[in-house]
């Protein structure tokens, strides 16, 4: 396992985390045992790895949704994370939006729990809709939206409550290539304006390199870090030799670990 230098001010410190499964899956062997990792504040970290390696379970643990054994866990800003918190908002692959609410109402869903006057909140919603390019679709329902618009709505709604961390579980996997690339650019633009910490699970290596500041490849049983690479220095050009070389290296690594 690689051992990167400790971060100065991590958003998350995963410390000897072992995840157990509840309910019907109780007793199933968890891929996450005695796992440690640090995730930096204010940047986009992408988690890659073969299917079933445990990256989504890790993401859920970062959101406070997974059941961790007492031997370790996740430290969020120096505090043990024992339950979900509104500081960390998760965006799923699907079922993100409430179908009975319009885009505007979906985006405003978390506002009753935020501070501010009604007028301020209304202004924030309109500004956010403009920011993600959904002002024209504000009165439409999710069933009337394309996949990309639905995910933009979900991201906008998450950002409305001003979270410290946004966790994204394969958010663009259902989109076609062109739309997926537009969403990647939008995500970079949103990050540039908010500097929110993003942690994204994806299967798409190119996406991880294009969007992330740091790419972590996970794999093995129990899960470990196979590769931890900073991608700041790599040009955000999918055809640049550095991008293609890293993409090839990661794909080969994942392929070699696929069961």
């Amino acid at each position: 396992m690689l051992a990167p230098p400790p971060l100065q001010d991590p958003a998350f410190k995963v410390d000897r985390l072992t995840v157990t499964f509840p309910g019907a899956d109780a007793g199933a062997r968890s891929p996450i045992m005695d796992f440690s990792l640090e995730i930096a504040r204010g940047e986009i970290t992408c988690l890659l790895g073969p299917s079933g390696c445990g990256k989504t379970t890790l993401l859920r643990a970062l959101g406070g949704f997974a059941r961790a054994e007492n031997t370790g866990g996740v430290l969020f800003q120096g505090q043990w994370l024992r339950a979900p918190t509104s500081d960390i908002v998760m965006i799923f692959q699907e079922n993100n939006l409430y179908p009975w609410l319009t885009v505007r109402r979906n985006v405003a869903f978390g506002l009753p729990y935020c501070e501010g006057t009604r007028e301020e909140k209304r202004g924030r919603v309109e500004a956010m809709l403009r920011h993600v390019g959904l002002e024209a679709a504000a009165d439409q329902y999710p069933r009337e939206l394309s996949g990309g618009m639905r995910q933009r709505t979900a991201i906008a709604r998450a950002l409305m409550v001003d979270p410290k961390v946004l966790l994204l579980d394969e958010p663009f996997s259902a989109l076609d290539v062109a739309l997926r690339r537009r969403m990647q650019e939008l995500m970079r633009a949103i990050w540039a304006s908010t500097r929110t910490t993003f942690v994204m699970v994806t299967h798409n290596v190119e996406e991880a390199i294009m969007v992330g500041h740091r790419v972590i490849v996970l794999g093995g049983r129990p899960m470990s870090v196979l590769l931890d690479e900073r991608t700041d220095a790599i040009p955000k050009d999918r055809y640049a030799p550095e991008t293609l070389a890293l993409q090839r290296r990661i794909e080969d690594l994942i392929e070699s670990r696929r069961v």
Partner: peptide
């Protein structure tokens, strides 16, 4: 879908609001 209530809780809704909203 579990995501529905998870998201609501994540956005700050308590158990009662999660139920009614």
């Amino acid at each position: 879908p579990e995501e529905f209530t998870t998201i609501a809780g994540n956005l700050g809704a308590g158990p009662v609001d999660r139920w009614f909203r």
